[in-house]
Simulated scan of single mutants.
Amino acid sequence: MPLADYDELRKIDVRPFCKKRDGLDYLNWATCIDLLRKNGASKVYWEPVPDPMTGSSLRRTDVEFKDKNGNTNRCYETQIKVVIDDNVYYMQTPVLNGANPVKDNSMSQQRVWNSMCRAFVKCVAIHTGLGFDLWLKEEISNEPYIPDTLQKRASPAKIKTIQQLCISHGIDGDAWVAGNGKKWDELTEGEAAKMLNALKQRYGDE
């Protein structure tokens, strides 16, 4: 039989198969494959996509940044290819330690592996619905509280700070803002606060 559709797979309660990690429910990649196969998939696997420049599973930006302690680091990510029957997906995610980016002095093969496993389970949730509510819960819990009163236009100084941080981390800030249907001078204080919080969570900026 073919793989169940998105709505059916999303209704599956995966919590009995989960373990706790960083206070949230975590679905193991192997269990994820098993559940897909039990619900109609005939072929499910994932594999690393090596960095074309280095051949390594670990990808890094060319831009260095310093944390609040003055340590120099880079942003590290992994990319995987996910195959589910005739469908092929790609997922690239940061290498994280909980909610924090993994820095040079604490990088390990285990953290690279964890990043790819997490990417697989998240990719499956996005495209098939299996386990999607786990990620919905996580994203909501990580969403910073922005009061409704912060709807006035962001100050030029705050916008300049965001632009400088984007440049220092190799981020296309213009594309980020445009992707949210905005222009720089249209950002509200609340939206600017969300952007700054996202940069802090990913790069440790203060």
Rank of each mutant, 00 (worst) to 15 (best):
K20P: 02
R21Y: 04
T93Q: 10
K183E: 08
K66I: 00
N100G: 02
E138M: 12
E77H: 09
W184K: 15
G55R: 04
A99N: 13
V95C: 02
P52L: 00
K183P: 00
C166Q: 05
E143M: 10
L150S: 11
M107V: 03
V95P: 01
L58H: 05
K182Q: 10
C117Q: 15
R118A: 10
V14I: 12
W46L: 01
A125W: 05
K19C: 02
A41G: 09
P52K: 01
K137H: 04
W46A: 02
K183Q: 08
G173Q: 04
P16K: 06
L187H: 11
D67Q: 07
S106E: 15
K137M: 09
G170W: 03
V83K: 01
G181R: 04
Q92C: 14
L187F: 12
Q163V: 03
N28L: 10
A99P: 04
D172V: 08
N87Y: 10
D67G: 07
Y89C: 05
V88K: 08
A193Q: 11
D86Y: 01
G40K: 03
R153L: 14
Q109T: 15
Y6H: 14
M107I: 09
I171Y: 06
A178P: 02
I33E: 08
N180K: 14
K11C: 03
T31Y: 06
S56M: 09
R37M: 14
P101N: 00
P147C: 15
